[in-house]
Design a binder for these strands. Sequence first.
DNA 1: TTGTTGTTTCAAAATTTATTGAAAGTTCTA
DNA 2: TAGAACTTTCAATAAATTTTGAAACAACAA
Lengths: 189, 189
Amino acid sequence: MSEIDTVRKDFVELWGSMGHFWGISPTTARIYSWLLSRSEPADTDEIMEGLELSRGAVSMACRELREWHLILPERVSGSRRIAYRPATDLEKVIRNIVEIRKRREWDPILESLREWIPQLQTDGSSEAAVFRQRLEDLESLIARSDSMVKVFLRGGVVGKLGLKMLVKAAHDEATRADTAESQNRETRN
Amino acid sequence: MSEIDTVRKDFVELWGSMGHFWGISPTTARIYSWLLSRSEPADTDEIMEGLELSRGAVSMACRELREWHLILPERVSGSRRIAYRPATDLEKVIRNIVEIRKRREWDPILESLREWIPQLQTDGSSEAAVFRQRLEDLESLIARSDSMVKVFLRGGVVGKLGLKMLVKAAHDEATRADTAESQNRETRN
DNA sequence: TTGTTGTTTCAAAATTTATTGAAAGTTCTA
DNA sequence: TAGAACTTTCAATAAATTTTGAAACAACAA
């Protein structure tokens, strides 16, 4: 087994076990990493053979990868067959993932919190007051994180160049959010 | 059912379903959120009753929560019983989680990548060259993200105040990392 | 030391999540 | 329109993860 095959195998395995972290299934993650390890795009049959997966599994996983914009389908010339090419702008890839997860997972939390807080105000008990305070702190923290994520999604992120922009933009965003929000949290911290 | 109980129920349920996102089991997440919703600490029996869990499940979950520093055990006076109080500095809570997950999940990836890249250099094929280039990009991205996370872990993060520090510190960190690293990436994007 | 109170452990059971594979569906060519 | 070449779907199956519960263990008081 040549060097590249050894590394490929380990890489695919590691990536597969990380799928959980990104919120995608192991198989889906393995397919993406396997495509990344190849210089040419691959079609369904090649993926099936390369990773020992069923046709259905490959189809499902590729659908997910397409939704996340992690792979690009291409027609193989002179055939109806579709081959997949992995997206290689990794920063964009991460942005895609963060954006989708934010929408699916964070946004609903903020909505719920904003619904619950006023509901707790109708309950006069001190227990409710403590609970409400904690939910408010949580709302505030998530809202501030949300601002940072929005900035992240707009610009180049992790690079040094993007950093100054990040600060300024995050500040603007936070200021805007705070102004729109109720003002009674100014003195806390 | 009073207002607080309704909200508590929904909150616990939501938090439980989010456990996956944080990499903790639903029960563990539910216990933490249930504690957050109460003004007083709770002992094993109260948690068991409040969330309809077995003794063993509560013990396991609380052990995990303790490891993550999400709850603090306290002796109930005049008894051997232990009651748990939730950590309420949520920013610190998030830092704890990020720190542990970084160590467990990210650090090993960087290590592996740094092992694989030189291995691929012994393979002269163009396929290996493409693969190696992608791994290098990945290494670079993760290393830069890592710098930001380190900064995040050191300071107040999400608040407006911490932001300026974040920029400066991230810049310093990145500069330091780059200098220590091999220099052959300077011109890349 | 013994009994009581409370906690932890871990193999087995339940639940959840991921994968398969065969059948149904789609698109293209002739 | 018929047939070939692929792709997608989804109920059934397999795998992984979570939870249980009873037994073992630990701490303390008498």
